[in-house]
Computed example of a mutant assay.
Amino acid sequence: MGDTVLLIDLKQLVIPTYLTEGGVPVTFDRQMYSLISGVQWHTAFGREGDPIYKQPNFEGSANLDGRLERNGILLDHEYIKAVIFFEYRLSDKEPKFLGLYRSRNITQGVRTFLYQVCDFINDELNSEGWQNNRILFGDQDSK
Score class of each variant (00 low, 15 high):
70 R>P: 09
125 L>G: 14
15 I>N: 00
83 V>R: 02
106 I>V: 13
68 L>K: 07
42 H>G: 10
32 M>T: 15
125 L>N: 13
22 G>D: 01
135 I>D: 04
79 Y>L: 01
42 H>K: 12
62 A>T: 09
134 R>L: 02
134 R>S: 09
21 E>G: 13
127 S>T: 13
69 E>S: 15
104 R>S: 11
143 K>P: 04
92 D>H: 12
10 L>I: 01
110 V>A: 13
137 F>H: 01
132 N>Y: 05
6 L>W: 05
21 E>I: 05
98 L>Y: 04
37 S>D: 11
30 R>M: 12
54 K>C: 14
93 K>D: 11
72 G>N: 14
115 Y>N: 07
105 N>V: 01
33 Y>E: 07
25 P>E: 11
78 E>M: 00
68 L>Y: 06
61 S>Y: 11
26 V>G: 06
107 T>W: 08
30 R>W: 10
4 T>H: 15
47 R>S: 12
19 L>Q: 03
91 S>E: 14
67 R>D: 10
32 M>Y: 14
20 T>N: 11
94 E>C: 01
27 T>L: 03
134 R>F: 09
127 S>C: 03
61 S>L: 11
61 S>V: 14
85 F>C: 00
71 N>P: 08
48 E>Y: 02
132 N>I: 09
49 G>Y: 06
119 D>L: 07
60 G>C: 03
65 D>A: 15
31 Q>P: 05
135 I>A: 03
115 Y>L: 14
141 D>Y: 08
93 K>L: 10
6 L>H: 02
127 S>W: 08
26 V>A: 10
86 F>S: 12
123 D>A: 03
16 P>C: 05
89 R>Y: 02
24 V>A: 03
84 I>M: 09
22 G>H: 06
117 V>E: 10
58 F>R: 15
70 R>F: 13
55 Q>D: 10
30 R>L: 14
103 S>V: 04
73 I>P: 13
14 V>D: 15
15 I>V: 13
124 E>T: 02
102 R>P: 00
66 G>C: 12
122 N>E: 07
104 R>Y: 11
90 L>Q: 02
95 P>R: 04
132 N>F: 01
128 E>W: 01
134 R>D: 04
31 Q>H: 12
35 L>I: 09
123 D>E: 04
78 E>R: 00
79 Y>V: 08
